[in-house]
Computed example of a mutant assay.
Amino acid sequence: MADAPGQGAVHLALENGIASVTFDRPEARNALTWPMYERLREVCEQLRDDASVRAVRFQGTGAEAFVAGTDIAQFQDFTGEDGVQYERRIDATIGLIASLPMPTVAAVQGWCIGGGLAIASACDFRIATPQAKFGVPIARTLGNCLSAGNVAGLVAAFGRPRVQRLLLLADLIDVDEAHACGYVLEIVPNGNIDAAARKLCGRLAVLAPVTQQVSKETLQRLLKHSLPDTEDLIRRTYGSEDFREGVQAFLAKRPPAWKGR
């Protein structure tokens, strides 16, 4: 499949039972376009069905960002129903990552924001460089919202108090705090993250795969138990004047003027 100009790419490489998935759009901090999301789903489906793959690492191109969310330009002219469909698409993609039968590692450099945070949180382990920042600053930028599944995943990874800071205060969590709370397994010096990710994947690849698969599935079932239906809240948010204002303000590089409607 040829990559459309400016639309970015998601690359898959396989070597000795270790898969590497790379988000490649460094000119936009690896912000994901619709074609990149589609390619990510294809990659995850391929990995899911490949019994020879024993571990997967996810990474961004360049040192500036892992993934800085979804490309905001794609939100222009969104309606409330478009928002519901978008959140369903995100949930399906994140669900594919989380349900991969083999262990997964996110190698995070720089910004890990919005959809990037969801991807990293769906992985089993995260390693990061000292400059890594984690957040969902939508209360400051776009004025949109997350699905119940996405919020549940963040709460499982960070705990409710930190997720309240992420969503209500639009705080960013630095790598030291992320490491202290267990979200980041290891802080890796600049320039060493590829080697560290390979080493961790190598450790995972020699362990009992059935035990890993069953353990992952058990954890996923615990997370999914009794998730509420929040599509009415998603429809309300993406259909709001504030969301339209947030998108236009972001693209115009000006502060948004929230009206509460």
Score class of each variant (00 low, 15 high):
5 P>H: 07
182 G>Q: 06
57 R>H: 15
246 G>V: 01
87 E>A: 06
93 T>D: 06
38 E>R: 14
177 E>P: 08
182 G>W: 04
162 R>G: 00
6 G>W: 12
186 E>D: 03
90 I>Y: 02
65 A>W: 09
38 E>M: 12
32 L>E: 00
76 Q>L: 15
91 D>N: 13
104 T>H: 02
166 L>D: 05
30 N>I: 11
213 Q>W: 03
151 V>F: 00
15 E>T: 13
192 N>M: 14
239 G>C: 02
24 D>G: 12
161 P>K: 14
196 A>V: 08
108 V>K: 05
166 L>A: 06
25 R>W: 05
98 A>Q: 13
3 D>F: 12
202 G>L: 12
131 Q>L: 14
197 A>D: 08
115 G>Y: 13
21 V>R: 09
139 A>R: 12
52 S>P: 05
229 D>F: 09
215 S>C: 12
25 R>G: 03
178 A>G: 12
180 A>C: 08
253 K>L: 05
176 D>H: 13
67 V>R: 00
36 M>K: 03
7 Q>V: 08
111 W>L: 15
239 G>Q: 01
137 P>M: 01
162 R>V: 15
54 R>G: 10
106 A>S: 03
245 E>K: 06
75 F>E: 06
248 Q>I: 10
214 V>M: 04
14 L>G: 13
75 F>M: 11
30 N>H: 04
177 E>Y: 05
95 G>W: 00
